[in-house]
């Protein structure tokens, strides 16, 4: 049976998180697991002397250190070259046939810019696909970082999985405060403690066939837990969540025009968009995922089994009015309902 590109391509997972939030410690823990023996690792450090790759290199020999500088601003060409070189070495059997790549970013990187490298380059796109974005959240410093560092929010909002570190250094009330914070910043992401065994499920390889469908459904049902009208005011006023639910089918072309126009005008402040679309011509939902200006290639599920037949989209916004997003969707997209 011929495999699709989605099944064939090597996933590039991104491990990000603010400075000192425990990315390297988390990476070491992940790589120690037997299941991760077939991973290649790219490490990007900000500073003249790389240290992280030495720590990780003890565990995983296939570590490439990207030169000093931040991957999201200056080294995107280098990321492309590193991914391309890994592939060549794999074909020449100079490295074992790795099944996934994990990129550890600097603490100040914007994940959306790294994602765009994988999507935009024709050669890279042909061989690799974007894997999960995992963001480490420092339980001790998260409240202050959320107030002071804009990139903290971008890293948290772009995550598929949030990895809470240093939770043993704070009390129950502080941990509760962090959960409230994360409810606002990224309600769709799974939250894991770095010490839990669930960490070993991070950066999971792409599942195939029915198994993949089931996994996607499990993640998507989490959307229904998000209130359409938040009960309380956001912890920090600039961040808000808009959830759009529509039970009548939408027109794909109108949606594409609207979302691409919206992202062109406001992408910097649309930290995350995630959800599913009910399109008349499609047997199952179309899964939409994006981080700021970058939208992943839409995924098609074979059926609606286990999911409510409706469009259900979540936007995490910075400084934008959720009601305005909903109204704009109504005006530009739902007009074709009739």
């Amino acid at each position: 049976m011929r495999m699709t590109h989605e099944e064939d391509a090597i996933p590039v997972g991104i491990l990000t998180g603010f400075l000192g939030s425990g990315k390297t410690t988390a990476l070491r823990r992940i790589l120690e697991a037997e299941a991760f023996g077939d991973s290649a690792v790219l490490i990007n450090e900000f500073g003249e002397v790389g240290l992280d790759h030495i720590l990780v290199g003890e565990i995983s020999p296939d570590v490439v250190l990207l030169n000093s500088g931040c991957l999201c601003c200056t080294l995107r060409g280098e990321l492309r070259d590193a991914l391309s070189s890994l592939l060549t070495r794999r074909i020449r059997k100079e490295v074992p046939p790795f099944k996934r790549v994990i990129v550890e970013t600097t603490g100040i990187a914007q994940p959306s810019l790294i994602l765009s490298t994988v999507f935009a380059d024709p050669q890279i796109r042909h061989h690799y696909t974007v894997g999960d974005v995992v963001t480490t959240v420092d339980a001790v410093h998260a409240p202050s970082q959320s107030r002071q560092e804009a990139v903290w929010l971008e890293q948290v909002a772009s995550a598929d999985d949030l990895l809470i570190t240093k939770a043993d250094c704070v009390g129950a009330s502080e941990l509760n405060e962090i959960n409230v914070l994360l409810d606002k910043a990224n309600p769709t992401a799974r939250r894991l403690d770095v010490h839990s065994n669930a960490v070993l499920e991070l950066f999971a390889l792409r599942q195939r066939g029915e198994e993949a469908e089931r996994a996607k459904r499990r993640r998507l049902t989490a959307l229904s837990m998000i209130p359409q009208q938040p009960h309380d005011k956001p912890h920090y006023t600039s961040v808000a969540t808009a959830r759009i639910v529509a039970t009548t089918p939408v027109d794909w072309e109108s949606f594409g025009v609207w979302l691409s126009m919206l992202l062109h005008a406001h992408g910097h402040n649309i930290l995350r968009v995630k959800g599913l679309l009910y399109i008349e011509e499609s047997d199952g939902p179309v899964v939409i995922q994006g981080v700021q200006h970058v939208i992943h290639p839409p995924e098609h599920l074979a059926s609606w089994e286990g999911l409510a037949r409706a469009t259900d989209l979540v936007f995490i916004l910075r400084g934008l009015d959720p009601d305005l997003i909903k109204r704009s969707f109504e005006v530009f997209v739902r007009r074709t309902d009739n």
Binding site: R125, W252, E253, G256, E281, V286, I295, P297, P298
Partner: peptide, 11 residues
Amino acid sequence: RTHWSTQGVSR
């Protein structure tokens, strides 16, 4: 040239 909006549904 691939843009995500061209990969939705086929009509």
